[in-house]
Nucleic acid binder design. Structure first.
Length: 421
DNA sequence: TCTGGGGTCCTAGGACCC
DNA sequence: TCTGGGGTCCTAGGACCC
């Protein structure tokens, strides 16, 4: 038996947690660069504001209904997420943190401790609400996919009071017969189109389709989905967070940028960020890709996209070393005469840092560079991002992303901590 | 004017091996 | 008429997730 705990409108709820005046009002959170809507309160959803909508297309609605806007601020969300996940770990031993706002719970073997799973889920909800003010919904079922379905109903139908358990076959069938196939976990817009063209509209219908057809058209992943709908688990709980196999850092510029010098500064910062992520998981990278492109939405302007992939002489996690190759790669693909929107770096082909083979002629230098990066990480963890950085990153960046509607840093900056009067 | 960022997995086909 | 059998590795493209 699996439980899925999902935070409702998570980013919006994080802001509401520290500002109760937002309760009951339409609130949205924007993507990086304040571009698109990535989270909405229920009141904003009721106004017809859809997920992924560009902000400039809904300015009328926003003005008319005084929708409150926030730029996204991941330190806050990450912090609140950790608090919620910590609470879940007090109730059950095995918690899979699936995303920033979702976790699967292994409820197998708890029949004696928690004979009433719905009551347990309600207790989880009220504890999370009291300690973090984040509202959550819980779905309970024999497989992860069915728990996702249960959660969907728990979140949307008030009568469930935030918790739905789907265990007996007739209840599962009834739920699946009402469940649109495109809402399923593992069905995106391409598969949804394919299924509809073949007359498959509900999750129940998909569960009844012949295995051979499903595997042929939706690969083995589709087959796993069908099995899970029939109550046979194919997706195990993953308790150890897997190490990443690639790391990409590529935020857009806050404005279009034509000149190489500015792009180089931005790239240096992206490389520093990517290398930090790499060191945090104790890996070194053997391959680096640098890419650069213009704004694809400006179809009247000349477009340019290019990338360069470099095999590094030996795997490394040193920012300065990666930066050396990144700069050369960028110079080889940069073209004058374009307005660029983004430069990015992708690290891949990882080796664990303790298996690392140093360069034949540069062994001790490698060691020193690795140590240097480690020291910088420690200083920056303690004193703030980029407090110590490479000069290549520049001193007053002009390319940074837009964040016009930042909230205070309630949990990560001393002067922003709320004062209780 | 204005349109996000960061990931994973699977498959088919080609190149190569003995 | 008729041309084997069994593998591995790599890549590009396509699907999905939050």
């Amino acid at each position: 038996m699996v439980g899925l705990v999902d935070c409702n409108n998570f980013y919006v709820s994080c802001h509401r947690s520290f500002d109760p005046s937002l309760e009951g009002k339409p609130v949205i959170v924007l993507s990086n660069n304040d571009g698109c809507v990535v989270a909405r309160s229920n009141q904003a959803k009721e106004l017809g504001i859809t997920m992924g909508k560009p902000l400039f297309q809904i300015e009328d609605v926003i003005k008319a209904h005084q929708v409150k806007i926030f730029s996204s601020t991941y330190p806050l969300y990450g912090d609140m997420s950790a608090r919620v996940m910590g609470i879940l770990g007090r109730f059950v031993e095995e918690v899979e943190i699936y995303s920033i706002d979702e976790a699967f719970l292994n409820l197998a073997g708890y029949d004696r401790v928690y004979p009433d799973r719905v009551a347990l889920a309600q207790q989880i909800r009220s504890t999370v609400a009291q300690w973090t003010r984040i509202p959550v919904s819980v779905g309970i079922a024999p497989t992860k996919t069915l728990a996702k379905v249960a959660n969907w109903y728990a979140k949307r139908e008030l009568m469930h009071n935030g918790v739905l358990e789907l265990t007996d076959p007739s209840a599962i069938q009834a739920a699946l017969e009402e469940f649109a196939v495109e809402e399923l976990w593992g069905v995106g817009h391409r598969y949804a189109g394919l299924l509809k063209r073949n007359g498959i509209k509900t999750a129940w219908q998909l569960s009844q389709v012949h295995d051979v057809w499903i595997q042929k058209h939706m690969t083995v992943n589709g087959l796993r989905l069908a099995y899970e709908l029939r109550g046979t688990p194919c997706r195990q709980l993953e308790l150890e967070p897997a190490k990443k196999k690639s790391i990409c850092t590529a935020p857009s510029f806050g404005r279009l940028v034509p000149d190489l010098a500015t792009i180089k500064e931005a790239l240096a910062t992206h490389v520093a960020r990517a290398a930090e992520k790499l060191r945090r998981q104790h890996s070194t990278a053997g391959v680096m890709t640098v890419f650069l492109h213009t704004n694809r939405f400006k179809d009247k302007e000349k477009q340019y996209y290019n990338s360069r992939t470099v095999e590094l002489p030996h795997p490394t996690a040193s920012t300065s070393e990666l930066l050396h190759y990144a700069g050369a790669a960028l110079e080889s693909i940069y073209q004058e005469g374009y307005e660029f929107q983004k430069v990015g770096v992708i690290l891949s082909d990882f080796t664990p840092e303790n298996h690392r083979q140093p360069g034949l002629y540069s062994g001790s230098l490698d060691e020193r560079l690795v140590k240097l990066s480690g020291v910088m990480d420690k200083l920056n963890t303690r004193h703030g991002r980029d407090k110590v950085r490479l000069a290549a990153q520049g001193f007053c960046p002009t390319w940074q992303m837009k964040q016009q509607w930042l909230s205070p840093c309630y949990t990560t900056r001393w002067k922003d901590i709320l004062v209780v009067k």
